[in-house]
Design a protein around this nucleic acid. Structure first.
Lengths: 135, 135
DNA sequence: GTGGGGCTTGTAGCGGCTACAAGGTCAAGG
DNA sequence: CCTTGACCTTGTAGCCGCTACAAGCCCCAC
């Protein structure tokens, strides 16, 4: 039969869930779906493509606002892709900053752990490091 | 004079904000504060210590549930610090997993960026990589 | 006594879902 | 034809750790 899928089928085809699809529709990231007589949402191949675009973008860590902008750009193939590049670069830089933050965090946690000799809490270096009495 | 501080002073002393202090009290991470006649919260040195403990723990990325547990352990200095160690290790491992995830993300974003030649969106590799038509 | 800063409570919002509840629809099996 | 049970519908609340209001009270300096 036809290309039309129910929300569950469409979600599965894109690797997401029905709740997420409805959520995206509510946010305007997907156009309002066509409906069956029984009020079920119906999705065609283009809808599934759009959904997959969103899914892939989320996997890459883009926020929904970025994805909204990227979708608008993708819909307009004649435009210069400088804006696409800018969004991607800004996102990569944010990810790299986050990594740097977490690296220094992990380093500090490793240093604390090494010092823990496994005695009583009273002598625990980890607690000590957290306690202002130690500073 | 006395050691008593208002919420704003206590928050400042610990490097947080009044809203956060009230929030912690509501969650039971801090005991209900004493009050002045005019219903202002009052904080002593031990309260500020506790608040600093929380602040430092948050800086290290611990969740509030972890901090609740760590505070309970810190309050009981005779206990074995194995549990402290376990919480810290679990957290470090979670941070390290997060770093690994973000590293692979950043790598993918860098690869995409390099391929962008700066033409039209129609030929943009970034959009292509997001579009299911490319896969 | 007045101005303005800080305090009080309560509530809503951030992101990106996720998990209900209460009901409607639909296809398969008896 | 009727029932079962999977799926769909809407609406609402919750997750985390705050943050930002709003409306009103308190307190101190001038």
């Amino acid at each position: 039969m036809r290309d039309d899928l129910t929300i569950g089928e469409a979600a599965k085809a894109a690797g997401t869930k029905p709740e997420t699809v409805r959520y995206y529709e509510r946010l305007g990231l997907l156009p309002p779906a066509r409906r069956t007589e029984g009020n079920y949402r119906l999705y065609g191949p283009r809808d599934v493509e759009r959904l997959r675009f969103l899914r892939r973008g989320r996997d890459l860590g883009f926020g929904l606002d970025d994805l909204r902008a990227l979708l608008a750009l993708a819909d307009d193939p004649e435009r210069d892709c400088a804006e696409v590049d800018r969004i991607a670069r800004a996102h990569r830089e944010a990810v790299e900053r986050k990594i740097a933050d977490l690296e220094s965090l992990a380093g500090e946690l490793r240093r604390l752990e090494v010092q823990c000799r496994g005695g009583r809490v009273a002598e625990c270096r980890i607690i000590e490091a957290l306690s202002p009495t130690a500073g």
